[in-house]
């Protein structure tokens, strides 16, 4: 199919943060937060990114929206190179690509009323004004399950789940095509998580939104995603259709991740893979395959040669063991 099918194409994305130190604050090393990640998102579809802390999934989300400057690679949004955009183009891009954050307590300006928070993106992008804008704010509040009277309140008056709804309304205000959801339910209670997940699914179906859904909880990612990408230490280790990937994981890390999640089935037979040790520091990643230090299936080549991220049938995987 043509490019049109892909809303977002990410190629070999890299972000290296310098580590400064020493007497004169010179660079003494780099943290390879994201190191060569590629994926695509189709219109109206969801790509889920999972991984543990430090794997670079949130950084990837920030890079896609150019809230951080990338070190190398390419992000194409509807064929346009996000990295090359000038100020005005970038502003227009922000109309089409939005973000929802993890911490609903920190992501809303405490000094602004909810109405102002939701109206601000419309003001910045000249969408509606005056009474029409107020009306739109009310509509958006309704869409996310709040009431028009909430517009005058301030963020601290709301619960975590309600704040997350406000954050969603703000993202929707510019009628975006893509929303990066950065751990949108991790900070919420279980019963509230399902409310927000349902809302996100409903909005996707009604508005044709595409999501880049970033989370460490595989359950939530599996629930909402069409495709899932698994990240480890700045690299994508496996990428494929969601159900298939969970049922038949190819990469040893994906297998571990799936087996590590405590499942609510008491007495069920478990073949849990317990990894040894901690995630290595991204400032000093292991040679060869980055997972080899903890991999239960590693062979000799793993510590020497980095596996290529290649297509295996309908799946992409980076592992020497997968033929």
């Amino acid at each position: 199919m043509s490019k049109e099918e892909h809303l977002l194409t990410v190629r070999n994305l890299k972000k290296h943060f310098p580590i400064r130190g020493g007497l004169f604050g010179g660079q003494i090393g780099t943290v390879q937060a994201v190191d060569g990640v590629s994926f695509t998102i189709k219109h109206g579809q969801t790509l889920g990114l999972v991984g543990e802390s430090g794997c670079g999934k949130s950084t990837t989300g920030m890079l896609v929206l150019r809230l951080l400057e990338m070190t190398a690679g390419q992000v194409l949004f509807q064929g346009q190179d996000v990295g090359q955009m000038k100020k005005q183009e970038l502003r227009d891009f922000r109309r089409h690509a939005q973000i929802i954050f993890q911490d609903p307590y920190a992501s809303l300006n405490p000094r602004m009323s909810v109405g102002d928070i939701i109206a601000e993106p419309m003001m910045l992008h000249d969408i509606a004004s005056g009474i029409e804008r107020t009306k739109k704010v009310e509509d958006l509040l309704k869409v996310v399950g709040l009431g028009p009277h909430h517009a005058r309140r301030y963020p601290h008056e709301f619960s975590g789940g309600q704040r997350q709804r406000i954050g969603i309304a703000r993202a929707l205000a510019v009628q975006p095509k893509l929303i990066v959801c950065d751990e949108p339910v991790s900070a919420l209670d279980v019963s509230i998580q399902s409310q927000i997940l349902n809302l996100l699914v409903d909005l996707q179906q009604e508005l044709g939104l595409a999501y880049l859904f970033i989370a460490h909880g595989l359950n939530a990612v599996k629930h909402i995603s069409d495709e899932i990408g698994v990240m480890y230490l700045g690299k994508m280790v496996e990428l494929g259709e969601g159900d298939e990937l969970i049922l038949n994981p190819l990469h040893p890390y994906t297998k571990t991740l799936i087996s590590a999640i405590p499942q609510p089935h008491p007495g069920a037979k478990k073949n849990r893979i317990i990894l040894q040790g901690d995630v290595p520091s991204p400032a000093n990643p292991p040679s060869g395959c980055r997972f080899h230090t903890r991999c239960p299936e590693q062979i000799a080549i793993c510590s020497q040669e980095e596996p290529e991220f290649r297509q295996v049938q309908s799946r992409f995987v980076a592992c020497h063991l997968v033929k």
Binding site: V190, S191, Q193, S194, Q195, L197, N198, V201, Q204, Q205, L218, N219, A220, K222, H223, I224, S225, D226, G242, D243, I246, I258, I261, Q263, P264
Partner: peptide
């Protein structure tokens, strides 16, 4: 209300 690994994709979750 917990999404399950063996559950359907984008299926409505029970909510409280």
């Amino acid at each position: 209300s917990i999404p399950r690994l063996d559950g359907g994709k984008k299926q409505r979750l029970h909510t409280i």
